[in-house]
C-alpha cells in the first residue's frame, strides 16, 4: 500500500515534478475558481481556456514546444480577450456573458486557423491536452511564480473581491477600486489557466479551477472555508489522478480532472448541503 502510494513519487523525478506542479496549481487555481463561481462566472474560465489557444498556438508554431513563448502568447491573448470582454460589459449595456462569448469565439476561431495553417493534429492535441508528466524546470518555475503571485493578490485584495461580489453598487459608492479589482481578477484567471496548460492542457486546466470550487459549495456557507476546502479537494484530486495515471497508464490530465469530477459528484450527493441531506433532513424543528 505504502509502496504503491508513495513509491512513484519517491522513485521518479518526473513524478516529483508533476506532484509539486499540480499541488501548487491546486493552491492557486481553487480559490480563483471559488470567486468565479460566486460571481456566477463559472463558464468564464472555460471560455478563457479556449480564448488563450491562438496565443499558445502562435508560440508553438514560432518556437516549437517551448513553454515560455507558449505561455507569453497565451497570456497576452487571454488578457486581450478578458480586458475586451470586461470593458464591453463595463461601458456598454451588454452583460459580460455575451461579450465574453463573442470575444472567446473570435479568439478560438483564430487559434484553430493558426494551428491548421501550420501544424498537425498531433500538435493541436498537445496544446489542448498538455501533460503534467512532462513538466520541465522552466514550466515548474512558471507555476511557482504564478501561484505565489495569485495567493499574494488574493490576500491583499480579498476584502475588495468579496465586496465586489456581494454588493458591487455599494463598493462603487464608497470606492473606485471596483473596476481595477475586476480586471485584476480576470488577470488572475488568465494567469492560472496559462499556468495550468502545460500540465493539463488549455481545455482541462479550467477543470482544476472550477470542479473543486463547485464541490466545495456543498460543504460550507462561508467564503474563507470554501476556499480551503476547494484547495484540499484540488490537491486530493491531483494526487489521486497522478497515481491513477501511473498505475493504470492513463493520460494524467483527464485522470486528475476525473478525480475532481468524482469528488464533485460525491459532494452533490453527500455534502452538508447536498441532495441526501436535503431529502432526508429531519422534519423536527425548534420552537423559535
Amino acid at each position: 500500500m505504502f509502496e504503491s502510494v508513495f513509491g512513484p513519487f519517491i522513485q521518479y523525478g518526473f513524478m516529483q515534478r508533476a506532484v509539486i506542479g499540480s499541488l501548487l496549481l491546486s493552491v492557486s487555481c481553487a480559490p480563483v475558481g471559488v470567486f468565479l463561481m460566486l460571481r456566477r462566472m463559472s463558464l468564464t474560465g472555460d471560455a478563457m481556456s479556449h480564448a488563450i489557444l491562438p496565443g499558445a498556438a502562435l508560440g508553438f508554431l514560432l518556437f516549437g514546444l517551448d513553454i515560455i513563448p507558449m505561455t507569453i502568447g497565451g497570456l497576452i491573448v487571454g488578457l486581450v480577450v478578458a480586458m475586451g470582454a470586461g470593458a464591453v460589459s463595463r461601458f456598454t449595456i451588454q452583460k459580460e456573458d455575451a461579450s465574453m462569448a463573442a470575444f472567446y469565439l473570435i479568439s478560438l476561431a483564430l487559434g484553430v486557423l493558426l494551428v491548421s495553417w501550420r501544424g498537425s493534429s498531433v500538435d493541436l492535441m498537445h496544446v489542448l491536452f498538455g501533460s503534467v508528466l512532462a513538466l520541465n524546470n522552466a514550466a515548474l518555475t512558471l507555476i511557482v511564480i504564478i501561484s505565489l503571485s495569485t495567493i499574494l493578490a488574493l490576500s491583499v485584495f480579498w476584502r475588495a473581491l468579496v465586496a465586489e461580489c456581494l454588493d458591487p453598487l455599494f463598493l462603487r459608492s464608497v470606492s473606485r477600486i471596483g473596476a481595477p479589482v475586476h480586471f485584476l481578477f480576470l488577470t488572475l484567471v488568465v494567469l492560472n489557466l496559462v499556468g495550468g496548460f502545460q500540465a493539463l492542457g488549455t481545455l482541462l486546466s479550467v477543470g482544476l479551477m472550477m470542479l473543486p470550487a463547485a464541490a466545495a459549495r456543498f460543504w460550507t456557507n462561508q467564503v474563507p472555508p470554501m476556499c480551503f476546502i476547494a484547495i484540499a479537494i484540488a490537491a486530493a484530486s491531483s494526487l489521486a489522478g497522478l497515481l491513477l495515471s501511473y498505475h493504470a497508464s492513463l493520460p494524467s490530465g483527464p485522470a486528475i480532472i476525473l478525480s475532481a469530477g468524482a469528488i464533485y459528484i460525491l459532494s452533490t450527493v453527500a455534502g452538508r448541503r447536498g441532495v441526501l441531506r436535503n431529502a432526508f433532513s429531519s422534519r423536527r424543528h425548534k420552537t423559535a
Partner: peptide
Amino acid sequence: PQQSEVDRSFPARVIDLVSLGFWQRHGLL
C-alpha cells in the same frame, strides 16, 4: 439604493454585510 444589488445568495453572514460599512474608515487593508 431602492433596489440594492446585494447578491442574497452569496455565502455571507449579516456581520459580513454590515461590516462593509467600515470600508471608508479602513479601506482595503
